[in-house]
Structure formats: C-alpha cells, structure tokens
Design a protein around this nucleic acid. Structure first.
Lengths: 230, 230
DNA sequence: TCTTGTTAGATTGTCGACAATCTGCTTGTC
DNA sequence: GACAAGCAGATTGTCGACAATCTAACAAGA
C-alpha cells in the first residue's frame, strides 16, 4: 500500500484571503506607514462585508504591522529609527541562537533546501523583482529557524519577518534604484554548509550589519516626518 | 505650572473587555487546553453579540493561546512537553540578553520597582493566592525586559508570558498543593541589585531551571492524553 | 458486517442595518 | 477676532439574521 501524506487543505474563508491581501499590500509598501485603513472603502473594493475585514485587521494588529485606536481607526504602523534598531539588534542575537540550534540538525535535506532558496533569491535578483528579492532573501534566512526545532523561536522569527520585510521594502522604495547584481548570500550559504559554526555565526552577524546600516541611515533621515499617507 | 502626565484612558470597547475576560479564563485554567469555545454560548453568557466576540477570539489566536480551524471552531491550545521545553530553552537565552541590555540602565527607579514587585509576590504567597502568585512572579521577572529598552524584545517577552502563565497555572491545578512559603526570588533580586552581571545571568538561568524541571515532568506525564475539555 | 449515500441539527462564516463616537464646520456671543 | 456651543457628516462598534459548512445519526446496498 502506498503511503500518501497529504498536507492540510487551504483555508477557504474570506477572512484568510483578506489577511493575505492586506499583508501583501503593507509589506510591499502599497499602504504607506501611518496610513489609515477605511473599512467601508476597502470592504467595497474587495467586495466583502466589513465583518471578515475587521476580523482580518484584528489579526494584523496582533501581528504587529497595524495599530488600532478605538473609534478613531486602524493604521499601518509608523516606522522609527529605534524600531529598526531594536529589530536589528534583536535579530543578531536570535540568529546566533538559531544557527547554534540548527547546526547539529543539518542534513542533506537542509542543504538541498538551502540551495533551492538561494537559487530563488538569485532568480528574483536577475528578474529585477525587488519585492520578490526581499521575500526570498528572508526565506533563505529563515531556514535556520525552521531547522532549529524550536516552535517559539520559529514563531518569533516569523513575527519579526513581517516587519523586516516592511522595513526593507520601504528602503527600496525610498532609494528607488536597481538591486545589486552581485550575490551577497554566497558566503552565507557556503559557511552554513561548512564545519565552522562560529564562523557562520559571525558572518551572519556582519552580513545583517551591512543591510541594516543602510536601512538605519535611511530611517534616521525620515525621522519626525508627518507621513500621513494619501 | 504643575506638570501632569496622564495615562491614556481605558479602551471602552466591548471587544477589549472580552479579550481580557477570555485571556483571564484561559490563563487561570478555567478553560482547559483543547477545549472548544462555542461562540453562541459565550456570547449569550457575556450578553454581547458574536461580532466583538469573534474579533476578540481572532486577537487571542494571534496571541498564541487559542487556535482556530475554519468551520470547525476555536480551541484553547494544547500543551505538549515539547512546547514547554521550547519555551523554557528560548526563555533562558532571552533572559541572558535582557539582563545584559538592562544592566547598564539600572537606576534608583529600577531598584524601587524591583522591590515593589518582589513585595507583591511575597504578599500573594502569604495570601495563598496561587493565580496571583504566578502573575506577580512573571511581572517581577518581566522588569528586566521592560528595562532593556528594546521594543521587540519586550514584545516577544509579553507574548511568551501568556503561555508561561498558562503552563504554570496548569501545573498548579494538577498538583493541587499549597504554594511554597519560602522566598525563591530573594537571590534573584539581590543579584540584580549587585555588581556581577554574569552571576545574575547564571542565577536567572538556574532559577528558571528549577521551576521548569517540575513543569516538564508534569507535562511529560500527561502526554498523549485526549484532553477534550467539558 | 462493512461501506456508502442521505439527512437533520448544530455551529461557524458572512451580510446589511443600526447605534455610538469622533471630526470639522458653522453659529452665536463677548 | 477669539472662543465655546451646537450641529451635520463620516467612520467605527455592535447587533440580529441568513448562508455555508461540518458532524453525527441513520438507512440502503454490496
């Protein structure tokens, strides 16, 4: 008898689809930080009633990318330099932990998946698809968390990912220049395949540094901007 | 002119109150793990309609203490030994980080607040109020996170706190014996006031160990139990 | 007996309408 | 002109009812 392991079927509620749509809109920068989400207008655009839309918004508030003020509205979170700095410095420590935990669990499947995700980043880079490039880079980075075999650690990473993706998207939008053609993840992947865990941890820390330094400079620049979107 | 700093007024939506009520019911063990939440029944008991109740439930799902299956229902999360182990090992690392970050920021206000929270634990212990004892102990523990000046770190701790409180409450319910009269936090507080950061970090790690070891043993005991609540 | 199709009941998901609240403008008064 | 009161208009919060889906019991057939 053939063993077939089926994955759970997709959630087919409107709410789940609305969550995905809104999240995408926020993380790609279609909805600017500070912008208010008008329930009636959005529900009409999506052709749904306000009930599932509001439930979806509650989820995104808890996810940390929306913020809600009773009787005033729900807004895309503002981004301050300190927010980015906090996320950055937290991420550094988390990365060290994740690599440490995932290290002894690496196997052929890990390496294959690593290559697959690396390839996805390179493809997005070649296609000049900046949104997808950010997305795939974070997925590549997230592999060590998936492999660390700690549900709390993974969940924390996933929450953080939302905001990181938003930050990087903002940055890209702001400077509005083509993505770097070079492969900045080459060393990261190579070290994760190697034998020196310390080296991998150090590189991860510095590699993150590079990306974040630019991001921080950008964020400091737009500090104290009103930024109520259209 | 006198400077008056007002705190924001309380959220006066039904949703916020429902969230608080449900969270309390879960964290104190009034709602058992795995138990299904019947929307109609709860909404009638609370004298509210299902709309704000459902929104509240969505928040708690994102908070990680409820889980939802479309068209099947919303349930209190199950607790496995691995969940507790994951939370425990994650917490150890986070604690070290929080102490490191909070250490240079300690001041008189920190020490005063430390004493205040320590006192609250001792009072709950004397009153044999186990629920409040767990709550205050976590608040005492949370001070280093509030002082670490990192929003992401603090938020992660707060999310974790919900589940920790639930785990400890379950444990207390299960063994159903009076709380220890001795003051287990004495050393922790003393070290946080001292000059040796490493010592404080080590103690935090071992201190957590003590509590968790018992908890883990308990969790391993009830593994593979069906546990669908009444 | 086991499997499959059907049906009734209960529960969740969604909708449209009403109530509560906020915002900005207008009006009147000093 | 400055300021407070009051009045629309718009928006959020809440409600009750309907539609979609699941579960479990039951009947029919191999």
């Amino acid at each position: 008898m053939a063993k077939a392991d089926f994955s759970p079927i997709a959630d087919t509620t409107r709410r789940a689809e609305i969550v995905a749509l809104l999240r995408r809109a926020i993380l790609t920068g279609q909805l600017a930080p500070g912008q208010k989400l008008n329930e009636l207008r959005i529900s009409e655009q999506m052709r749904v009633s306000r009930a599932p839309l509001r439930e979806a918004m509650r989820e995104l508030v808890q996810e940390g990318i929306l913020t809600s003020i009773p009787y005033a509205g729900t807004f895309v979170i503002e981004v301050t330099a300190k927010d980015i700095d906090d996320a950055y410095s937290f991420n550094k420590v988390m990365d060290e932990l994740a690599i440490e935990r995932a290290w002894p669990l690496r196997d052929q499947r890990f390496f294959d998946e690593l290559d697959r995700r690396h390839e996805a980043v390179k493809q997005a880079t070649r296609a000049l698809d900046t949104t997808r490039q950010i997305e795939t880079a974070l997925q590549l980075h997230g592999l060590i968390y998936e492999w660390a075999d700690n549900s709390v650690l993974l969940e924390t990473w996933q929450r953080l990912t939302s905001r990181l993706q938003m930050y990087f998207a903002l940055h890209q939008h702001a400077r509005n220049e083509p993505v770097p053609a070079e492969d900045v993840h080459e060393t990261y992947v190579r070290l994760l395949k190697g034998k020196d865990m310390r080296a991998a941890q150090c590189h991860a820390r510095e590699h993150i540094d590079l990306d974040f330094e630019e991001l921080l400079a950008y964020a400091r620049g737009l500090e104290q901007r009103p930024s109520r979107g259209a």
